[in-house]
Design a protein around this nucleic acid. Structure first.
Length: 320
RNA sequence: CCCGCCUUAGCUCAAUUUGGCAGAGCGUUGGACUGUAGAUCCAAAUGUUGCUGGUUCAAGUCCGGCAGGCGGGACCA
């Protein structure tokens, strides 16, 4: 596959790449490193899965994949004691493997390197380069909002920037909520004589309740190891306004999971409502916006799809 | 180190001057209405009132101690 084709593949489904020219250079490298950091989370859900799938795709294209299990970051973000978080990290590692990343994937626990002298030295250097306002702003979409924000909130982004240098990352992949931290890295790493990675941002999934963001703290997600019945119930309870595409979580699941995976979505429908349909992405959008496709039929189709799509994951989770 | 204020349901907060059955909104759950969800309407559930000792027939409320949070002051050779 030529480089142009690889670039197109990587760009597919992303919101932005900063920037494409640099990524092209990275693609000429032998084993360029792509990384994503995740705060250990009680459940790995479809939102996480968007980035994991992108990592998997890049792995297939020859990238070395490093996943940071960001235990200290979670700790700084008030997600629990470091012991609890490390338990969760183990579970998350299993989830990521279940999603199909190969054995060549490096899983790195943050605390294994984030206290080393070279690392803290870089954090301190970054601390002298970053204003408090800038650091706080970079955390707007990432940190828990507290009436009593902690110093931890401004250490967090500095560490994330230092991670990229310590893990020798060529490409940093993350959801759009990471953008401000990533840009901070692009800006400040060169100032401490480190190379800034290419930054790639993927879209955020709306919560099943229609909330801005699917998030484990809000319970508005499909977890990758949810039971079949749970998937059905959750999809059925989901926000899904008739004819509306924008901000519709069920349509988003179709866009981000069905169609990258298969050309058509089978909609099983009783005869009295028009009988079965097989729709391409474009057709789905048209049919749904026109009102010809009822939300309930779409929901049933999506639930069926997800149950099948996540079957391998459930198997892996129970057998490993 | 000193002083003041705060801590009540998952969340935001009520519970007056003067101690008298711990409440509301939001959220959650369930029903009604929709061939989904939401919106709307109806209904329900939920408490170690931060912890602890005391006063009292009776304490969220008064007194003491402790913890956590917030603000201020002091110290600055």
């Amino acid at each position: 596959m030529d480089i142009k084709a690889k670039l197109d593949l990587i760009e597919k489904g992303t919101l932005e790449m900063i920037n494409t020219e640099e990524l092209e250079e990275k693609l000429k490298k032998e084993k360029a490193v792509a990384y994503t950091g995740y705060e250990p989370s009680g459940k790995i859900h479809l939102g996480h899965t968007i980035t994991v799938m992108k990592l998997k795709q890049m792995q297939d294209l020859g990238f070395k994949i490093k996943i940071l299990l960001a235990d200290y970051h979670a700790y700084l973000n008030g997600k629990g004691t470091i012991e609890e978080i490390e338990e969760t990290a183990k579970y998350n590692e299993k989830c990521f493997k279940a999603l199909g990343l190969s054995d060549d994937t490096d899983f790195v626990l943050g605390s294994t390197f984030q206290t080393k002298p070279e690392y803290t030295d870089e954090v301190y250097k970054l601390a002298t380069l970053t204003t408090i306002v800038r650091a706080k702003r970079s955390m707007d979409q990432v940190s828990r909002h507290s009436e009593h924000p902690k110093v931890a909130n401004v250490i967090y982004p500095l560490m994330q920037v230092a991670d990229m240098s310590s893990l020798e990352v060529d490409v940093a992949l993350g959801g759009m909520e990471q953008r401000k931290i990533q840009v901070l890295a692009r800006e400040n790493l060169p100032k401490i004589d480190k190379e800034a990675p290419v930054c790639i941002h993927t879209p955020l999934l709306h919560g099943l309740d229609g909330d801005e963001k699917m998030s484990s703290s809000k319970g508005n997600f499909i977890a990758i190891d949810d039971e079949e019945s749970e998937i059905k119930t959750k999809i059925n309870k989901s926000f899904c306004p008739m004819k509306e595409i924008e901000g519709n979580p069920i349509i988003e699941i179709a866009t981000h999971f069905v169609f990258p995976n298969q050309a058509k979505l089978l909609i099983e429908r009783p005869e009295k409502f028009g009988g079965n349909l097989e729709l391409s992405e474009k057709e789905l959008i048209e049919t749904y916006s026109s009102g010809e496709l009822h939300p309930m039929d779409l929901k049933n189709a999506i639930a069926t799809f997800l149950i099948d799509y996540l079957a391998k994951v459930r198997d892996y989770m129970t057998n490993n």
